[in-house]
Structure formats: structure tokens, C-alpha cells
Design a protein around this nucleic acid. Structure first.
Lengths: 201, 201
DNA sequence: TAAATATGAATGAACGTACGTTCACTAATT
DNA sequence: AATTAGTGAACGTACGTTCATTCATATTTA
């Protein structure tokens, strides 16, 4: 009986937990980690203060959960790089998706908040670094194969270029979100164009 | 007597104020705006809590002062762009200085902290945007003159390229500070190289 | 199946602490 | 004498967290 019916309660618990995560995310986006109180989060989630502590040991655990959720998005980017047949269009699509998911007002608020945490917490920073290294490797190997097809100049260092490309997308996403939202499409297009220029033969 | 001797006390006051600003900056770098208490800042500055409020109306005023100090650095970048005779080396030097002053652990901690504030406070954001626009204009006009000398390809859109270049330096600075400090020089060099590739004829 | 028991979700008052800010006051400068 | 820098105790509030307790569900026993 435990295989099926074990979920009557467990399922409700999981749902509540998700409810809390969603509400906490909204609070963190609106106010930031340290301006959001556990009381505010609890009432935003429609949960009592005490019960909030039944689902999360403390505030740090809640923050960590949300930071981890954000980090998980990296696997989506990896998938794009693998799936797209053409290397250059894979890189462009990476830019599209990366910028789109990072550059929304909510996205950037959360990203910045997490970044502030990353800067001060080496444990979180190393996780981020590992994710980024994986992405750089993926881009770099796509560039390598593009080189063998003579789509990319031989003298370009693949790894340096991969780092550069990620730097560009990060910079573009930030610019769009904070400073220049209306011109998002144009910014992505011209960045794509300039990246291609610097890779070409 | 007010022209000269007015400074005996005024000068000491100014010095104390600077002392507070320095201490506050150190606290904000270490802990962030909202994790630094007025008590901590006061004692770091060697000033009583009450006296801190003689120099700054409240905590927000202190934060605003430090954010403004950071924004003032932009004029330094503008100066570099004007002074350097060759356009391309001006851009490279801009990268050097920008990355150097932003990518230290303290620099990035403060930048991120201010950014988090910028994201939520449109009033501060517009000041940042204005500074950035001025920088983009300066780079863009240097690119224009480089075009007339045939140092840069005609088909490159100067303004788009200027935005792109700033995006790159921001991305590089962030990467170095958060993820990959030891390879700062290499990152700057390869970014410079790739920027030149995408501008070339 | 029906009753008894154990488990975990849910509550909100309460605790201790730390915060931003104020204020009555003293000390020093003009 | 008048003004201003400087002090630290005090105030009210808000925070993170704990806790005794209630209630609904699951598990065991009869």
C-alpha cells in the first residue's frame, strides 16, 4: 500500500513546500534576500510562521534552495549547445536564451541578489564557477568542431573565445535588464554579429 | 577671519566625515549594505553612534554617498578615452583600467551591492544609465575617427560596437573578480585581441 | 472493520536580540 | 556666550527562531 497511498499527505506537503519556494522567490525578487522577513514570506505563501520552519530549517536554507534552482538553469544552456547542429547558430541561440532568461526585471534582480551572495560565500561561488566552466568547455568544443569545418578561423583560441562569448552574453543581459530594456533584440543581434566577425576567417 | 581660520574646525569635521565614509565603505564591502549596522559602521570609524548621525542624516544618505562616489569613477574612464591618441589603444586602456578597478574582490563586492540597489531604485538607475551613455558616446566617437583613418571597418556600426565593447569589459571584470582572478591579465589580453578582430577591416 | 496510537502538518504567541533613530547631555571651538 | 562636535543610554520596532499545543492523517492493534 505504501507505493501509491503514501502520497496523500506527502503530495500535499510537497505542494506546500513549492508554494513557499514560489512565494519566497517573489519576495526575494521584490525586496532582496535580506529585506525579506520570514514573516513576510510566510504570509505571502499563505502559511503560518511556525509552519514555514517545518518546511525549511532556517532562512539560509530557503535562500540556498532558491540559489540552487537558479544554478540548475545552466543545464538548459548546455542542452542548447548540444542540440543545435550548427556551431555558430548554437552560440547565437545560447545568447538568445541566456539573455532572455536573465535579462527580465525579475531575472536580473534575482541574479544580482544571488551574485551578491556568491561574492561573499566561497562555497556558493565554487558551484557557480563549476557550472560556468562546464559551459565554457561546451562552447569551446563547438568552436573546435567549427574550426575543422573552416567556419571559424584557426588562429582563434577556442577556450579564450568561449570565455569571451560568455562574457559578452553576461554583459549584454545585464545591460538590457538594467539600462536598456527596449533595445533587447537589437542588442542581441548586434552582439551576435560582432561575435561572428571576430571568429571569422 | 572666516576665509582662512574657518577651517580649524571645519577641516576636522570634513576629516571625520571622510573617516566615516571610508569605514562605511569597508563595512559595505565586507558585509553588504543591509548587513552593516550603523553601530558597526560607527565603531569601525571610531565615532560614537550619535555622532554618526551628526554627519549623515540616516543610513540611506550614507549609502547614497558611497554609490555616488562609485559613479564618479566614470569620469576617469572618459578622461582615458580623450587622452589616448590612438583609438584602439584607448579602448584597450579603458579595458585595463575598467577591469582593474572593478575586478578586485572589494570592487566587485561593492559594484554588486550598488547594482542590487540600482535594480530596485529607478532614481539611481537613471544616473547609472546616464553615465553609461556618456561612455558609449565617447567610445563611439573614437571608433568613428578610427574609421576615417581606416583602422576600423566601415561596415561596423560605431554605437553598437561601443555598447558591445562596454559589455565585454563589464563581463570580463565580473568573471575575473568572481570566478577566475588568477588569469586576469590573460583574460584582458584575449578580450582585447578579440575586440580588435571584430573591428578590423 | 473499528478503535487506539503515533506521526507530522499547522498555529501564533513568546523570547531574545539587534536594528535605526532620537535625545538630553557634555566638551570643545569660535 | 553661542555654536557645534561628540557621547551613549534609551525607545520603539522588527527580526529569526523556538515552543507548547491543536488538528488531521497515517499506522498499528484488536
Amino acid at each position: 500500500m505504501s507505493e501509491i497511498k503514501e502520497t496523500a499527505r506527502a503530495k500535499a506537503t510537497r505542494a506546500k513546500r513549492q508554494q513557499i519556494v514560489d512565494a519566497a522567490m517573489a519576495c526575494f525578487i521584490e525586496k532582496g534576500f535580506h529585506q525579506s522577513s520570514m514573516r513576510t514570506i510566510a504570509s505571502a505563501a499563505g502559511v503560518s510562521l511556525g509552519n514555514l520552519y517545518n518546511h525549511f530549517e532556517n532562512k539560509d536554507a530557503l535562500i540556498a534552495e532558491i540559489a540552487a534552482l537558479e544554478a540548475a538553469e545552466f543545464s538548459e544552456y548546455l542542452k542548447i549547445l548540444e542540440d543545435e547542429p550548427d556551431a555558430l547558430s548554437a552560440i547565437q541561440k545560447l545568447g538568445d536564451v541566456y539573455v532572455e532568461s536573465t535579462s527580465s526585471a525579475e531575472g536580473v534582480a534575482l541574479t544580482v541578489e544571488i551574485t551578491a551572495e556568491v561574492v561573499r560565500n566561497p562555497a556558493i561561488a565554487s558551484g557557480f564557477a563549476a557550472n560556468r566552466i562546464r559551459l565554457v568547455r561546451a562552447i569551446s568544443s563547438r568552436l573546435d568542431s567549427a574550426k575543422t569545418l573552416n567556419q571559424v578561423a584557426q588562429e582563434v583560441d577556442s577556450e579564450e573565445a568561449a570565455q569571451f562569448i560568455l562574457d559578452v552574453w553576461e554583459g549584454v543581459a545585464f545591460r538590457i535588464a538594467v539600462l536598456d530594456k527596449p533595445r533587447a533584440d537589437r542588442a542581441i543581434a548586434s552582439a551576435t554579429h560582432l561575435i561572428e566577425r571576430c571568429l571569422r576567417l
